[in-house]
Write a protein that binds this DNA or RNA. Structure first.
Lengths: 345, 345
DNA sequence: ATGCAGTGGGAATGCGCTTTCCCAAAGAAT
DNA sequence: ATTCTTTGGGAAAGCGCATTCCCACTGCAT
């Protein structure tokens, strides 16, 4: 990557680099119009493109916002990414993308890389977990984040705080009310369904999953229902599918009147697919509800009951807070009951 | 963003910055082990993180790969992005993300921003179009790309070349065989279906859409069928939905035995949703096929017949070529016939 | 003992830009 | 007419790092 420099432009325009800098890249001081034009012309004719790295070095700020997601191809994160992207553009910044695939160690690496690039802020949208085997990696991540914040970085975490991150300044959390919403979903479902509930969840210690389970159980309890059985599996479509196969067997064996709550939409779809693959029908043989309200899945039949989350907003909020705009706009979702949880007449 | 510098580390370790640099960041010359340890310890205790901007400035290369997509929340692009991301990680680089929302002007801006950041390479995965009103913006984009290449940048475009880009070097195209695959889809469908065909397509001059139409028509012709009617709409789910409503009306009015080819899966789902919303059924009242084989949509019922595209691979290929690994691995897809195009017995 | 290549460290330069500081000229005020 | 402010441009000092060049030193052959 070679390209013409400010100095070249300045020489061609017959001015000093200082002046060229002032006219080309916003400065408080505005050189005279005639000079400005000369410079602009010179820049144009040379195809000058300012070197953002050098600019960043000089003013020590990069205009970069780092985003780490679990998997960019997952519609949940893709939506959040879009929100971050939009907010970044409004702030005149660019987003640096990293995927962590659920490994705290990978998240740490990403954070370190962002720090190295002197990203002004970081949005962390992986999936926080407290698994035993991740303890070390998690605390390493926390250390890295603390260091980043200590150096003046801003970080916004969506969902749950990173375990062990202690830094006071520069650390924001976009709290998604998973628990409350799950409770409210449970409450709504209890009026529709008098039978048993079962929740298909992710692996233990995955915060998002655990919160939703807890909220759901609380909602059931508040309605005077028994706690739901919890079926642990992968936090993915195929995890849901596996669970679905197993449940289908039980349903076929006579276990009727079941309402299945999968802790996210993608899993719910997996569950549904598996159940239908066994010649059972939804909602006839089992009710199903999800969580997230993934856009791409809205045309699924029967329409999936779920909890709507303003994913794009969540991303945008995270980016805005990380960007220093601290106006607090709480995240709110809402239960969206659709056909997958309505017993047929 | 303030942080400790190499100079501070060097001072603490009692060595020169040059030596510190040599031990901390890979260099040909390896200082002695005792010194190396001193430096490493100093770095550790100071929480030193190399400034990538400064490094980039010094060695004039940034380790950045720019990716511009139409919309990161669209599963098609999200999958490609994942591929790019994976390839980038393997190359030890980071990806800079930009979304263009279909506007060539936005693409140009993104390319300019990438150039400013001295991205080593750029992957362009917007949707090329030749619309009359985009002519100017397209040529501006071409100019920007040419300049970027002229300065030593590498660019990979997925799908179609940018109209008017002339640069000889550094310019790669990952060709997706849309036309051939559409033809082969048509061929396969003609053996399943003896009635009429109709294609639901995107706006005129959108290359991807046009190629798929052309290929499909060619396939029909090769099978001795009449050309399909082309229904133009938005290249989105809601475009498909609108088309679906209109088609549903025709079907309800007696137009039976229709096979609808929507030029992408998302549109196909929109079409299907609209048709089913009118108390019609698929495939009973109309067959539907899509294109792309979006992962999230695989559990749709009835399973959507489509053309499988290795999206992640496409992204990875683009990133690899842009990265200089020039081994050519052709993109191949295949027709995937599923239940949405099978007349019921 | 002398010369040689080879080794390992430091000094200094430059990457491309921003920004402070300085200075000359021009205008306002006395 | 003289002094005091502005105004507008340039010189120069970094920003944090890589790297070239140079130098002192060691070990070897002669």
């Amino acid at each position: 990557m070679v390209a013409s420099t400010l100095a070249e432009v300045a020489r061609l325009a017959g001015v000093s680099p200082a002046t060229a800098s002032r006219v080309l890249n916003g400065s408080a001081r505005k050189p005279g119009p005639d000079i400005a034009n000369r410079v602009r012309q010179a820049a144009e004719s040379l195809g000058y493109v300012a070197n953002a790295q050098a600019q960043g070095l000089a003013k020590s700020s990069s205009g970069l916002i780092g985003l780490v997601v679990h998997d960019i191809a997952d519609p949940y994160f893709a939506s959040i990414a879009r929100g971050v992207q939009v907010a970044a553009r409004n702030q005149g910044r660019m987003v640096l993308l990293a995927t962590a695939a659920g490994a705290p160690e990978a998240e740490r690496e990403a954070v370190a890389a962002f720090a190295a690039r002197r990203a002004d802020s970081i949005v962390l949208a992986g999936s926080r977990s407290a698994r035993k085997e991740d303890t070390d990696a998690n605390s390493a991540l926390a250390t890295e984040l603390d260091r980043y914040c200590a150096n003046g970085g801003q970080v916004a975490v969506v969902g749950h705080p990173v375990v062990g991150a202690t830094s006071g300044t520069g650390y924001h959390v976009v709290a998604v009310p998973n628990e409350a919403l799950a409770a409210s979903l449970a409450a709504d479902l209890t009026v529709l369904h008098t039978g048993r509930f079962i929740v298909v969840a992710g692996p233990e210690s995955l915060f998002t999953s655990d919160d939703r389970i807890r909220g759901f159980q609380a909602g059931l309890a508040a309605a005077g229902r028994e706690p739901a059985e919890v079926f642990r599996t992968q936090f993915t479509r195929s995890g849901g599918h596996a669970a679905g196969l197993s449940l289908a067997r039980r349903i076929a064996a006579g276990e009727k009147d079941l309402c299945i709550f999968a802790v996210n939409d993608v899993m719910a779809i997996g569950v549904a697919a598996a159940i239908r693959g066994q010649d059972l029908r939804i909602p006839r043989d089992a009710l199903i509800a999800g969580f997230d309200d993934i856009e791409t899945l809205r045309d699924f039949q029967p329409e999936l009951s779920t909890v709507h989350l303003p994913l794009e907003d969540i991303g945008a909020q995270a980016a805005r807070r990380a960007g220093g705009d601290m106006d607090f706009i709480p995240i709110t979702g809402h239960v969206a009951l659709r056909r997958s949880t309505h017993h047929e007449e």
